[in-house]
């Protein structure tokens, strides 16, 4: 799937990957790839700025730990993040329903 197709939906996708529990940046990218069966495979480096932006907005919170001898930042959803995810889901359902109706193939009108 092309990156531009994700515009406006990336925040919701990242929030959804954190719904089941805390993850670090690489694990977020992998979770998104796995849950979409490889259809959404973001460049790893672009996941981190997006996570920082979500943290700045108070939708996720990060904590440092050490793993494999490296500093690792793990993120979890905040209460505001859970609410934002619910809003994103509702918005997406509405949008998807509208577009599905609009794009539905209609039979040709009968010739009089």
């Amino acid at each position: 799937m092309r990156a531009e197709a994700l515009k406006g939906h990336l925040d919701g996708l990242l929030l959804a990957t954190l719904e089941d529990g805390p993850l670090h940046g690489y694990a977020v990218k992998e979770a998104l790839r796995e849950v979409t069966e490889g259809r959404i495979d973001l460049p790893t480096g672009t996941v981190y700025p997006a996570l920082h932006r979500l943290e700045g907005a108070g939708l996720i919170s990060g904590t440092w730990a050490v793993a494999n001898g490296r500093r690792r930042r793990t993120y979890r959803l905040t209460a505001a993040g859970h609410a934002a995810l619910s809003d994103q889901r509702a918005g997406w359902q509405e949008f998807a329903t509208a577009v599905t109706f609009a794009l539905k193939a209609r039979p040709w009108p009968a010739t009089p």
Partner: peptide
């Protein structure tokens, strides 16, 4: 530095 450390973890993991 914090962003660079986080990216380092991600790139080594990759």
């Amino acid at each position: 530095a914090p962003a660079a450390a986080e990216l380092a973890d991600g790139l080594w993991e990759t």
